[in-house]
Deep mutational scan, measured.
Amino acid sequence: MTEYKLVVVGAGGVGKSALTIQLIQNHFVDEYDPTIEDSYRKQVVIDGETCLLDILDTAGQEEYSAMRDQYMRTGEGFLCVFAINNTKSFEDIHHYREQIKRVKDSEDVPMVLVGNKCDLPSRTVDTKQAQDLARSYGIPFIETSAKTRQGVDDAFYTLVREIRKHKEKMSKDGKKKKKKSKTKCVIM
């Protein structure tokens, strides 16, 4: 069974824990209790493949930012979460993405942009803004509501699919490099 290491990042209060708990335990946590770091595991079937999701729910508070490099190193894919009623959390996505790329030393890291709290009427981040940002990053965008469960499975499952595509691409690139290195030079 394939294991996928997913990391949920975003500013404090955007609903990272609520999304994760909704996926794992099928219930909505409405009281806000700032996370330092929590880890969850769940076995699911995605596109006919049974897999184990190892999900790291991270601290959004700035005082825990020193811990970010460590979990970013171990993560295979990242859910970059903002709240649709919090423009600052949307603007912060850029910083999370840049930090992930720096730590992973790669421009090509599996990510999904997630606009959470889409059940709320007080939207300050337009869907088109988020779609445009995701398009500019070359990553999928999904709106979710941890409260109603809308888009929750889709967000995590899409990230797994992005990781699969990335692994497939990397193995193809690896095979191309191996083929090239088999060419021999004969000096007579």
Rank of each mutant, 00 (worst) to 15 (best):
C80A: 05
K101A: 11
S89L: 04
S122E: 13
R102I: 07
K117P: 01
D105N: 14
C80M: 12
F82E: 03
C118K: 07
R97Q: 12
D119F: 04
K101P: 02
E107L: 12
M67E: 01
A83S: 14
R73S: 10
Q70A: 09
D92R: 06
M111C: 05
R68W: 03
R68T: 04
S122C: 11
I84C: 15
C80R: 00
F82M: 13
K101V: 07
Q70C: 08
S89G: 09
M72P: 02
L120F: 14
M111D: 00
L79Q: 00
I84Y: 15
M72A: 04
R73D: 06
R73G: 06
D119M: 06
H94V: 08
L79F: 05
V109G: 03
V81P: 04
V103I: 13
K117D: 12
V112Y: 03
G115H: 06
K101G: 07
Y71F: 06
P121D: 14
V125T: 11
I84F: 14
D92S: 09
G77Y: 05
C118W: 09
S106W: 12
L113W: 12
N116W: 00
Q70V: 03
P110H: 06
R68G: 04
V103K: 04
I100Y: 01
R97D: 04
T74E: 15
D126W: 08
C118H: 11
L113P: 00
R97E: 08
E76I: 14
N86V: 03
R123T: 14
Q70T: 08
K104S: 10
F82S: 14
R102P: 02
R68H: 05
M67F: 05
I84N: 15
T124P: 13
R68V: 01
E107N: 11
S65H: 08
R102W: 04
N116M: 15
V114P: 00
G77L: 12
D119C: 06
M67V: 03
S122R: 09
T74N: 11
C118Y: 10
C80V: 11
D119I: 03
Q70H: 10
P110F: 03
M67Y: 00
G77A: 14
N116A: 15
C80S: 04
K104H: 11
D126A: 09
K117E: 12
D119G: 07
Y64E: 01
S122N: 13
G115K: 04
I100M: 07
V109F: 12
L79G: 00
V109P: 06
V114L: 11
C80G: 05
E107T: 10
E76M: 12
S106P: 06
S65M: 09
V109Y: 06
R73N: 07
D108C: 09
V125L: 12
M72C: 06
V81A: 07
L113K: 00
L120K: 11
V109L: 05
C118T: 12
T74V: 10
S122I: 09
I93S: 04
E107Y: 10
R97S: 10
N86G: 13
T87C: 07
K117F: 15
K117L: 15
I100P: 01
V114F: 04
N86Y: 04
V112A: 03
I84Q: 15
M111E: 00
L79A: 05
P121I: 09
M72I: 06
S106C: 14
E107S: 12
K117C: 14
Y71W: 04
Q70S: 08
A83D: 15
R73K: 10
F78C: 01
L120W: 11
E63D: 11
Y64F: 10
R73M: 12
E76A: 09
K104D: 03
E63G: 05
D126C: 10
Q99I: 05
S89A: 13
Y64T: 00
S106R: 12
N86S: 12
D92Q: 07
E98P: 03
M111L: 09
E63M: 05
K117G: 14
V125C: 13
M111V: 05
I93Y: 06
D105T: 08
E91W: 05
R68A: 08
E98L: 03
P121K: 09
Y96V: 11
V109I: 12
F82A: 15
I93R: 02
A66R: 05
E91K: 06
A83T: 09
D105F: 06
K104Q: 13
V103G: 04
R123C: 14
S106L: 13
V81Q: 06
Y71T: 02
A66D: 06
M111F: 11
V109S: 04
R97G: 08
R68F: 01
Y64H: 01
L113Y: 08
L120C: 12
D105S: 08
Y96K: 03
N116F: 01
A83W: 03
K104M: 08
T124H: 12
V81G: 04
E76G: 05
M72S: 04
R97M: 15
Q70N: 12
K101M: 15
D105E: 12
V112H: 01
T124E: 13
C80Q: 04
V103M: 08
K101C: 10
S122T: 11
D92G: 06
M111Y: 03
